[in-house]
Amino acid sequence: MKAQFFIIGTVLICVLFFSGLVFYKTGIKTTPSKDLFYVSENLKSEFPKALNLGLKEKKGSSDFFEFNKFIKNMLQEKAVKFYSFWLIAEPLGTGLNVSVGNIRKPGTVIININGDEKTISLNEEETKSAVFSNPPEEFQITLSFGNKTKTMRWVRNKVSLYCWFSLERGENAASNEIEA
C-alpha cells in the first residue's frame, strides 16, 4: 500500500514539473510592440510639413514622393513595411492639378470632382497627375483606390492633401490617414 502512495506522489511531481515547463515559455519575451504607433503619429504630423517644404521650392508633389521613399527605406531597416497612397490638389489658374502617388499600393485610382471623373492607373512607386478644368471654388472630391473610397470637401484656391499610410511588421500593424 505504501508503495502505491510513492508512485502517486512521483507521478504528481512529474506532472507538476512538465506542466510547468510547458506553460513556462523560455527565451526572450517582449511586450507587444507599440513603436509602430509612435512612427504613425510622427508621420501624421510630418506629412503636411513635408508638403509645405516642397511647395516652398515649387516641388510639392515630387518632394512628397521623395519623402515617402525616404520613409520606406528608413523603416525597412526596422523590418517595417511601409505602404502609402496620396493625392495632392494644387490650384492651376481656374483649374486644379491633381497628382496621385503610391508606395507599395499600385492600382487604379478614380477621382471624381463634382461629376467630372478621371481614372488613373498607378504602377508601384509612381506618381501621375491629371488636370481638372474649372471646378467650382468649393468642390466635392471622391477618391477610390483599392477597396477604399473617400469623399472630401475642398476649396480650389488652396493646396490640399489626402494621404493614407500603413505600417506592418509581422502581426503588428498601424494605419492612418491625413487630410490637410
Partner: peptide, 30 residues
C-alpha cells in the same frame, strides 16, 4: 503513515525544484 510523509516530502521537493527552474530560466526581458 510514513508513506504519506514521504509523498509530502516528494511534493515539497517538486515545488522547490520547479521554483528553482523558474528562477534559473527567468527570461531575458527586452
Amino acid at each position: 503513515m510514513q508513506g504519506y510523509v514521504r509523498t509530502l516530502e516528494a511534493v515539497f521537493a517538486g515545488i522547490i525544484l520547479i521554483g528553482f527552474l523558474v528562477v534559473l530560466l527567468k527570461p531575458n526581458t527586452l
